[in-house]
């Protein structure tokens, strides 16, 4: 009897539509975010993550309204990310109904922001997103701008620092894997999970249900995030949970 591992469907939202890119290019339309979030809620998703991938370029009002609409219909935790740069961005998303916000580039440019956010709103609602790429044997670096810009920062050291700065959770995306369906980068996942004492969500690369099992069993992840396997109807969230439970992983099935 223990805490269940979580499955988190992720909605990458561009101009009000759920999309999915392969390595962040080649975008495919998957539908309306509110409808999709509701569907995953009904299928037994443990949480939902909403990433506004247009946020860096455009106004945020659409996102706020969409988060409000999702929060009215979805009674599981909701994380919102994309373009969170100031305390006021966090306040707006929490007020719209988000339970957590995910901070990505802003943490890289200004780590103190994570500290300020955690002090102000509590570690439980601050997720730090880390986009990592393998650059050598057992060596991963942080990239920003959808994987285009190297920072030279060691991903494992960065995760440890973010936990010290008050992150409540880490959302780790392997940029080499994102959208290519060959499974999580289990090396970086395990290296980070075993280095911090906060939950880690593995993301990037899920192509089948065994990849989710590997993320937990080999990568030691506390939660697994996937997008396209659910968006295009290959699997339901419930099928994924049953599959993980059958592999001996503690899941919420009720």
């Amino acid at each position: 009897m223990a805490l269940a591992k979580r499955i988190i469907p992720c909605l990458d939202v561009d101009k009000g539509r759920v999309v999915k890119g392969v390595n962040f290019v080649g975008i495919r339309d998957a539908g309306d975010p509110v409808e999709i979030a509701k569907r995953y809620n009904d299928q037994g998703a443990d949480e939902i993550t909403f990433l506004d991938i247009t946020a860096s370029h455009e106004g945020r009002d659409t996102t706020v309204h969409m988060v409000e609409a999702i929060a009215e219909q979805v009674f599981i935790p909701l994380t919102v990310g994309g373009g969170i740069r100031e305390l006021d961005d966090i306040r707006r998303m929490l007020n719209a109904g988000a339970d957590k916000v995910s901070i990505n580039s802003a943490a890289v440019y200004n780590p103190e922001f994570v500290k300020a956010a955690s002090d102000k709103f509590g570690a439980q609602c601050i997720v730090v997103a880390i986009d990592a790429k393998q650059v050598g044997d057992n060596h991963w670096e942080i990239f920003t701008h959808g994987g285009r810009k190297a920072t030279g920062i060691n991903a494992v050291e960065w995760a440890v620092k973010m936990a010290e700065f008050g992150a409540g959770e880490i959302l780790l995306t392997s940029m080499d894997r994102d959208g290519v369906k060959s499974g999580f980068d289990l090396g970086v996942t395990r290296a980070i999970v075993d280095s911090v004492n906060i939950p880690v969500i593995a993301s990037g690369g899920v192509g089948n249900l065994d990849h989710l099992v590997d993320g937990v069993k080999i990568g030691h992840a506390d939660a697994v995030l996937a997008a396209s396997i659910f968006h295009f109807g290959e699997y339901t969230v419930q099928q994924a949970k049953q599959h993980m439970a059958a592999a001996g992983i503690e899941m919420r099935l009720d």
Partner: peptide, 30 residues
């Protein structure tokens, strides 16, 4: 080693009370 905060879905063992009506014992809550 267990992570803190305790975050996620865990079981609750019920003690008879009207507010548990219709909810299976040991159901998980967030």
């Amino acid at each position: 080693q267990l992570k803190v905060p305790h975050m996620g879905w865990n079981r609750v063992e019920q003690v008879v009370h009207p507010l548990w009506a219709g909810i299976a014992d040991n159901s998980r809550f967030y």
